[in-house]
Design a protein around this nucleic acid. Structure first.
Lengths: 107, 107
DNA sequence: GCATAATATCAATATATCTTGATATATTAT
DNA sequence: ATAATATATCAAGATATATTGATATTATGC
């Protein structure tokens, strides 16, 4: 019950739905990229990304000081179906502003 | 976005998940049956049932003064997958206390 | 019509969640 | 070691949601 509720409540926020849609389109991005793209303050993003990660939707790959967030695959059926729904919503997303450089990191 | 969030937030409550599981097992029940089974006050149940209905999970069939709530079929893929998850949670549910009589009503 | 029963809605309080700004941690470069 | 950058966490206030008790609505039987 708790795990399911954690998954559902991760979905229960407009900001997090937009973040999922954005990461679904653009692949792995770090917090500063998202911060710049969405014009959001860092602590807010960090919190939402944590909730999405703990809800089983995202993975994090650390690369030096950067933390690259991306959709976690494979997703189970429920989360996968949720992502399909999100893809169909036609959400308006901001343009990607990419500041970070992967450099050595293999993502 | 709003419709999806309405669906998700309907799922985002322990009481409502239990109600879905209970109605999934027992079929159509009226508010007084649920009230008795769960030991909840009527206004609380009525509110949660309304949210589940507006979230697309339940239908209501009125029969005189009774309002019979049941899972709405067919469910779309996302809601159906949510219900599958709920079935797998192994939620402990109270025994059914059935007070209402269907009588003439065809359910 | 009047009384009773089932359900729905409202207003107030309690509880949880979100946002913000400040601070803490961690990594890299000098 | 110090400074700079990226991210995470914390505390306070703002907002949303849940619960309760009271009231309103609707249908039935007398």
């Amino acid at each position: 019950m708790d795990v399911f509720l954690e998954t559902v409540s991760a979905l229960n926020d407009e900001t997090r739905i937009k973040l999922l849609a954005f990461l679904d389109i653009h692949g792995a991005l770090c917090v500063c990229d998202l911060q710049e793209s969405f014009g959001m303050i860092q602590s807010r993003l960090s919190r939402h990304l944590k909730i999405l990660k703990e809800g089983g939707f995202l993975r994090v790959d650390r690369c030096g000081t950067w933390a690259y967030y991306s959709i976690r695959f494979p997703l189970d059926r429920f989360r996968s179906e949720a992502l399909s729904e999100i893809r169909c919503l036609g959400i308006e997303l901001p343009p990607l502003q990419k500041l970070s450089e992967t450099g050595d990191c293999k993502l």
